[in-house]
Design a protein around this nucleic acid. Structure first.
Lengths: 207, 207
DNA sequence: GTCTATAAATAGATAGAC
DNA sequence: GTCTATCTATTTATAGAC
């Protein structure tokens, strides 16, 4: 159990410093992605914000796309953790609601990164990031299972294909309505969350 | 009634050619904005697509932002026309539904331009474009009136602030769910429209 | 690994002839 | 107004010393 056994070895001080720096980088990227988006974010800016030279940044991540992918992977990990930590005894529909609420809270806190879905080089970097893909699959599988349960229980509209429901829930994580209502300044964060949750699950129609 | 009377004058051949060229430019920009978004669209590309030199493009529009704003203004005009052409005898809620359906059809046809909401220079160009601002106000006013009517009639959830409803409807015009479902290839355009309309107005919950 | 300095490429915008 | 050619700034990425 030493440095010759990389699996169980306790990380050395150097390794811890390295990990801490990468963590700082990812957090900065995460914030910038949430603030201004992928295209407007520059690598110079990231380096300056972290407080290291740009060349050092490229020792950790080989490209801007990989930088963004790492941040998305981290966000997906957090989503995974949240999903896994939900109490068992809650109805599947309410679990889905909790997840949406969580994504809305992240957005309002300026901590939800989002990427342009059209960029192909970015898609390649995302699909090449095993951590991201793993998290995405796990979250999708879990949400998909809850969706089907809720539809079987009659609490979720069974006329909708589960995948359409899944996409609709994912889309709430980058819903422009949140930022617009926030920019309006007329409503508290909790009110905004209530409105979006209501339109999402209850719809616009009167009941 | 000649060239000295610019208000009522019949446009000269030269003016018609100019207008036609600008129309071609705007249509190209519209398509590129729908395909790849503002950041990925380059001015070189626009010029090449239209078939003129880049410098010529800049004689018509002073910047890339103005180019995009012109395309958005045109799209807003079309929205205005559609809204104005809706039959009077339809219930307000169904008029709103028709408008959303129209935006979904535009998206599926690859003709709905969309801009990043974070870019500030872009916002300035948009707000400086009187045609766009005029169309935006007219559409917003009309939709707002229908929203309040529908809430008064009890067909739309009156617990939601009208502005939240308005934003939710606007957001459907750039809903990523549409492109994801389209990319999935499992559903027809009409099915996709049905799903999105259902989630928007009926919500995800079972009824 | 971190730094300074620089390369290499791209893209928005313009000069000046016609 | 349209063109070719060019400018200028920005940005991703790297070379090479320490």
């Amino acid at each position: 159990m030493n440095s010759r056994d990389p699996v169980s070895a306790k990380p050395s001080f150097k390794e811890q410093m390295l990990a801490a720096r990468e963590e700082a980088i990812i957090q900065t990227v995460n914030r910038l992605l949430a603030e201004k988006g992928f295209d407007a974010m520059t690598v110079d800016e990231v380096a300056a914000d972290v407080g290291i030279a740009k060349a050092s940044l490229y020792k950790h991540f080989p490209s801007k796309e990989d930088l963004a992918a790492a941040a998305m992977a981290r966000a997906m990990e957090r989503a995974c953790d949240f999903v896994a930590a939900l109490p068992e005894d809650v109805a599947p529909r309410d679990k889905l609601k909790s997840v949406v609420r969580w994504t809305l809270e992240m957005q309002l806190a300026g901590q939800m990164p989002s990427l342009p879905s059209q960029n192909s080089s970015l898609r390649a970097a995302l699909m090449g990031n095993v951590s991201y893909m793993d998290g995405l699959m796990r979250v999708s599988d879990q949400l998909g299972a809850w969706i089907e349960s809720a539809q079987a229980q009659g609490t979720l509209n069974a006329a909708l294909p589960p995948v359409a429901v899944l996409y609709t829930l994912f889309a709430r994580a980058c819903d422009p309505v949140v930022e617009f209502l926030k920019a309006g300044g007329q409503h508290s964060d909790e009110e905004i969350i209530g409105f979006v949750l209501s339109t999402c699950f209850d719809g616009l129609n009167s009941r």
